[in-house]
């Protein structure tokens, strides 16, 4: 039976956006935590740690997010966890985020002038103190614009978890399209919702970047 694309279909799609958002927030938090560790390891004084982190970043940035999703999905099942697809989805997105955030934050840490390390060493700061009081606060300011920018990539990439059955935006669109056969309307709506979520974040990222550059130049 062919249904029309009515308000109720629209609301169904709109409501599914909450899973997109939830997935984004959870994987950003989890991935951010992991990514932070990756960034610290990548800028560590211990060569093996640095190599490990570099390898991690290289692998995550060198494989499709879709493969991370399948590996998480089947990997968790293999390990004996019987978990809802949302968990596998979150894990895969967090892994993905860790690789990219790790690299962004490595760059931010290394963008802090090396004299700052020297100056804080001269004040007899310990390494953790240097990070805590001198380096990270400065790195953070540099890191915020690209981190916000990455958030857009994350939101968009959550669309692929539809393949393991999480009914987020893309999946909801697919379901409605199968019932209504009005692909332009349906996927246009889906695209519009993504756009409404992503565009303000993109604009914010650009504004922040402009401000950072202005401050560094001035």
């Amino acid at each position: 039976m062919i249904r029309q694309f009515t308000q109720s279909e629209f609301l169904f799609i709109l409501a599914s956006a909450r899973w997109t958002l939830l997935l984004t927030v959870m994987s950003m938090l989890l991935g951010g935590l992991l990514g932070f560790l990756v960034a610290l390891a990548r800028t560590s004084r211990l060569a093996p740690l640095r190599a490990l982190a570099a390898g991690w970043i290289g692998v995550i940035q060198g494989v499709p997010v879709l493969m991370l999703l399948f590996l998480s999905y089947y990997g968790l099942a293999l390990a004996g966890f019987d978990l809802p697809p949302l968990i596998a989805a979150t894990v895969s997105m967090a892994l993905y985020a860790s690789g990219f955030l790790g690299e962004i934050w490595r760059g931010s840490i290394q963008a802090v002038p090396w004299q700052q390390w020297e100056a804080s060493s001269a004040l007899a700061f310990s390494r953790p103190q240097q990070y805590r009081y001198v380096i990270l606060p400065q790195a953070m300011r540099i890191a915020i614009p690209p981190t916000v920018g990455f958030l857009v990539q994350l939101v968009k990439n959550t669309s692929i978890v539809s393949i393991i059955g999480v009914v987020e935006l893309a999946r909801a669109g697919n379901l409605v399209n199968n019932a209504t056969f009005q692909p332009f309307k349906v996927f246009g709506t889906v695209a519009a919702i993504y756009f409404v979520i992503c565009w303000p974040i993109s604009l914010l990222a650009r504004r922040l970047e402009g401000r950072l550059h202005a401050r560094r130049a001035g």
Binding site: F187, G188, Y194, S202
Partner: peptide, 23 residues
């Protein structure tokens, strides 16, 4: 540029694949 960069590749793919035949 803005439209493409702020929507998922998957959705772009679906619009083209399912949408084009409908026109």
């Amino acid at each position: 540029v803005e439209l493409v960069r702020n929507t998922p590749f998957l959705v772009q793919l679906l619009i083209i694949f399912f949408g084009m035949p409908s026109i």
